[in-house]
Amino acid sequence: MAKYLIRKSTNGQYWWVLKAGNGETILTSETYTTKQNCLKGVESSKVNIADGNFKILTSVRNDPYFTQRAGNHQVLGTSQMYSSTHARDIGISSVKNNAPIAVIEDLTQ
């Protein structure tokens, strides 16, 4: 089953990682100053899954990747770098399919 893992960095910031059922990382969030804001980011990621919420990008090394954005266009999460545009598109589909049903696991406690 897919899950959002809530983590805390050594500087006290929080972030989440969306993992697919097979354990692969799909998205990694930006950092948040509070756990409450991090959890709001997770909830936003769960509902902002329309095509328009994904921005298709290419790195300076020409690797395809994407970001998921909220309704206000703020970046919620960034994908890994993919080996092909086809693999990137599968990653986007994985977010759309997994995010709404993913459980939240708090690893900060």
Rank of each mutant, 00 (worst) to 15 (best):
V42N: 04
G41I: 09
N62A: 14
D51P: 13
T25S: 12
K46I: 11
N48E: 11
Q68I: 06
G71N: 12
T67H: 07
H73G: 02
G71W: 03
A87E: 15
K35D: 00
S93G: 14
A87F: 02
N48Y: 07
E43Q: 11
S93W: 03
V95K: 01
L27N: 08
L57F: 01
A50L: 09
D63F: 10
I26R: 04
K96Y: 08
R61T: 11
A50G: 13
Q36H: 09
E30K: 15
N37F: 08
D89A: 08
N72F: 04
S44E: 10
K55I: 15
R61A: 13
M81H: 10
D51H: 08
Q36T: 12
G71E: 13
F54K: 02
T25A: 13
T28K: 02
T78N: 12
D51R: 04
Y65N: 09
A70D: 15
M81A: 11
E43N: 12
A50M: 07
G77S: 08
A87N: 13
H73M: 11
S59L: 03
S83A: 12
T28Y: 01
N72M: 05
G91A: 05
A70Q: 05
S45H: 06
S45T: 14
K96V: 06
D51L: 02
Y82T: 06
I49H: 00
M81V: 07
M81E: 02
T78K: 12
E43P: 00
T78V: 15
T31K: 11
V75T: 14
I92P: 00
Y32S: 04
L27Q: 05
F54I: 03
V42I: 15
E24Y: 14
S44F: 00
R88A: 06
D63P: 00
T78Y: 09
Q36D: 11
R61M: 13
Q36E: 15
G41W: 02
G91T: 04
H86D: 15
S44N: 12
I26W: 01
K55T: 14
I26N: 05
T78D: 07
G52T: 13
L27D: 03
L76Q: 04
I90R: 12
Y65P: 01
F54Q: 03
T34V: 08
N37G: 03
N53K: 06
A70M: 09
C38L: 07
T25Q: 12
K40L: 07
F54P: 00
Y82N: 01
T67I: 15
G91P: 00
L39G: 02
V60P: 08
Q68S: 07
Y82E: 00
Y32D: 00
R88Y: 07
Y82F: 15
S79A: 10
K55H: 10
G77W: 01
N22M: 07
A50S: 12
V47W: 02
R61F: 13
G77T: 10
S84G: 05
G41D: 02
I26T: 12
I56D: 06
G77V: 03
S29K: 06
P64M: 09
T28V: 14
Y82L: 08
T31W: 01
G41C: 08
C38H: 08
H86W: 06
Q80N: 13
S94H: 04
T28H: 03
Q36P: 00
A70W: 05
G41L: 09
G52P: 00
S29R: 05
N48M: 04
S93M: 14
G23T: 11
D63E: 15
I49P: 00
F54N: 01
A50V: 01
S93H: 10
I92Y: 06
G71Y: 02
G77H: 04
Y32A: 05
T58W: 06
